[in-house]
Simulated scan of single mutants.
Amino acid sequence: MFTQLSGDTISPITSAHNTINNEIEGLNALREALNGSLKEPFEKAISIIQAAKGRVIVTGMGKSGHIARKISATMASTGTPSFFVHPGEASHGDLGMIRDVDVVLAMSWSGETAELASIISYTRRFKVPLIGMSANANSTLAKQSDIHLCLPKVEEACPHGLAPTTSCILQLAMGDTLSIALLEGHGFTAHDFKIFHPGGSLGASLQYVRDLMHTGDSLPLIKANTRMSEVILIMSQKGFGCVGVLNEDGLLTGMVTDGDLRRNLSDDLLTRSVDQVMTKDPKTLSPDILVPTAIEMLNSASITSIFVVENRRPIGLLHMHDFLRVGVA
């Protein structure tokens, strides 16, 4: 049963809307802060991290710790070396994981999390840059930090104001802003992203056309002026439902598809020249574009096969089935 503090019942959907609206208000407050009080410390935090020769050590306790793990993982996967250190384990040997070339990002909504004391003390003793993130500008964490990212104080979505909800959203969003600003700052590309994400559908979607295309003898290619009887034979043998037409210089000038055959059905089809049937100047792909872009091109053109060319010379062929095979379509 969903109840308000007054005892009146509230529907699950109304509760959901209330939660989302509360969290949106929190994010709006964070955006405003980034245009005001947070602007300078945010830019300084980015500069400190960019100048560091080591890693970003992210730490936090409880719900802040869960968010800290995610932030660290996001940084590590987008080109900013990072790992999470549990504050409870830090005083039992894990402080040795932190070096003076690193930067520590410590998170605590109140800024008074007792378990962070050993890490804070360690950074002060060994001059490790400390970036604090809390909602209390007068907290111990804020006062001890080299840079303090003071988040706006917001009401939790929890009707009792107890369960960390909106506060976690703000911490996560702040971590994402740091991660993406750092990504863009060091020119992290989709190719770099692929290196850190080789598995699953995400890894597959980060492949390039040249990674999937058919090449060599498997390509259905014929010369201009070839009779359609031979064209149909090549189409059947290669199994792609198409044939590329080359001029005397080996450049792709046309393409015959199953659709072209249907549109040109006649008694003399087999004796006609491919030049009379082919689609001239067909759409092609570069081998160095990402697979999602290639899928969009095929879908937009309502085609199932496309040749990959370099300087108009066909070097490969992609079929929609190739995308299905690797799980990206």
Rank of each mutant, 00 (worst) to 15 (best):
L261V: 15
S72R: 12
I20Q: 05
K153L: 13
L130E: 11
P164G: 05
V209M: 07
A76H: 07
Q237F: 00
L182F: 05
T257C: 08
S118F: 14
P41T: 06
A142D: 08
S82V: 07
V103T: 09
T215L: 11
K223E: 04
R262P: 04
I10N: 09
H214R: 10
S201Y: 02
F307H: 03
H197M: 05
A204K: 01
I119M: 06
G79V: 06
K280P: 04
I295R: 04
D192G: 00
T165W: 01
S302N: 13
I180F: 00
S47D: 05
Q144G: 05
I98W: 07
A68M: 08
I49P: 05
L265W: 11
T113Q: 00
L130F: 11
E310Q: 15
D8P: 02
L290D: 01
I48Q: 08
K39M: 12
T74V: 03
L116D: 01
L95E: 11
L298F: 00
T9A: 15
E25S: 09
P164M: 02
G203H: 01
H191M: 07
M1E: 10
P41W: 02
R55P: 02
T253H: 11
R325Q: 15
V245E: 08
V154M: 08
R272A: 04
H160N: 13
S302M: 12
P220D: 05
G254H: 02
Q144K: 15
D249S: 11
